[in-house]
Computed example of a mutant assay.
Amino acid sequence: MRITGGWRRDTESGCPEEELAGNQQHRRLARRKAEVHGWGLDSGFSTASLAAKKESHIDNLIWIVIGGFLMSAIALVGSVTVVLKPATLDRLLLPFVSLAAGTLIGGALFHMIPEGSAALDPLVTGVWLAAGFVTFLGLELFLHWHHSHSSEPTGRKPVTYLILIGDAVHNFLGGLGIASTFLINPAAGVTAWVAAAAHEVPQELGDFGILVRGGFPRRSALLWNFLSALTFPLGALVAYFAAQQFEVSGLVLFGAGNFIYIAASDLVPEIKANKSFRAAATHFGFFSVGIALTLCLAMWNA
């Protein structure tokens, strides 16, 4: 090591110490990108390293495709309305909505935000979160799209098409966010998937009811609801291939903003509508269970 012109230089690299310090952040980002893509940082370009990278890519792709189509299959849950009485369905739905609200908020706060923000500046983190929140607000304002968790929603046929469009966009964005989370941290990605699935069950039941009341035959309503859900694996595949070229941490935060909006704007107001003490206690309990489950998973995976 020698001193030259007030700069300390490494004898091998010839780089000023300040440049070396400035490159630390770049190396951290490179390490995170390597983890996402399955690269080996210390293995160079050996045959074993390339084989491991290819195997990791294939494994990730398989899990993303399976998870995507399983999420789409939830759209078929509307068929249970054929065998359940509306009053029974309503009693079951609101506690499930409460659980979904808790898991969505917990999944965003304890899993997606910590993973997505690890490689980003705080301001950039906030921008991505805000973008996810505002995007879903725009969907509601401009598409007049909403979730309904009642077994007897009302609606006219034009509304049914808006429901299908809104759900298709919603599912595509959900696939982007959840697959991106999985690529960075598989455990966090699975938790985000479970949280989204808990939300999808009551949503799809309500959407199925809207389609039927809007003039769709039951079989057609199931088919179109399922087709609109296929945009979830499409979004997941877009995230997978985008991760080969770009840092996907922002998409994770975007998805977290989606989760927070759905829970805070759509689900929580609905579970607050019932004024009886018993219903309030039940809904608060299920909501707390959702929060606690996601927190325990985060602590276990830490």
Rank of each mutant, 00 (worst) to 15 (best):
A34S: 15
R28M: 08
L253Q: 00
K85F: 12
I262L: 02
K85V: 13
L61F: 05
L176Q: 10
D266A: 12
G38K: 03
D167S: 15
L41N: 07
L50W: 03
L230K: 06
L20H: 07
I66K: 10
H146N: 13
A280H: 07
H57S: 12
S151N: 06
P269A: 12
S117F: 03
W63D: 01
G138P: 12
I184M: 13
S13L: 03
G5N: 12
E55T: 10
D59V: 08
S148P: 02
S46N: 01
S117A: 09
A192S: 15
Y161N: 08
L20D: 07
A119Y: 00
R156W: 08
H144C: 02
L162K: 07
F254E: 04
R218G: 09
G6N: 06
W7K: 11
L234D: 01
L293M: 08
E17W: 05
N258Q: 15
R156V: 13
V77K: 01
S43L: 08
G174S: 13
A298D: 05
F246A: 08
F259E: 01
K33A: 14
A118W: 07
M1R: 11
A51E: 09
V194K: 06
G155M: 00
G155F: 02
L104I: 02
I64N: 03
R278D: 01
A302E: 08
K33S: 14
Q24V: 15
A52P: 02
V194F: 09
D266S: 15
F208K: 14
T160A: 15
R213K: 13
F69S: 11
F216R: 09
E12A: 03
K33E: 15
A198P: 06
T47M: 03
V159K: 09
E12C: 01
L29M: 12
G189A: 12
H144N: 01
A51H: 02
L297A: 12
E270F: 13
A195R: 04
L211N: 09
V252P: 09
S46E: 00
H57M: 10
R2I: 14
A188Y: 02
T282K: 15
P202T: 00
D59G: 06
L89N: 07
L176I: 11
K275H: 07
V194Y: 04
L227W: 14
I291W: 00
P233L: 15
R156C: 09
V134K: 07
A34I: 12
S46F: 01
E18H: 13
R9T: 10
S249W: 01
V289P: 01
R156F: 12
P217D: 14
G68K: 09
V252M: 06
Q244K: 15
G285Y: 05
I262Q: 01
S276W: 02
A273S: 14
S98K: 02
G38A: 04
A197I: 00
L237K: 09
S49Y: 05
L253G: 00
V80E: 05
E200M: 10
L120S: 01
A73F: 14
D59S: 11
F246R: 07
I291D: 00
A108K: 01
L173S: 06
A187G: 10
A192V: 11
F142Y: 14
F241M: 00
L50A: 04
A263N: 00
R8N: 12
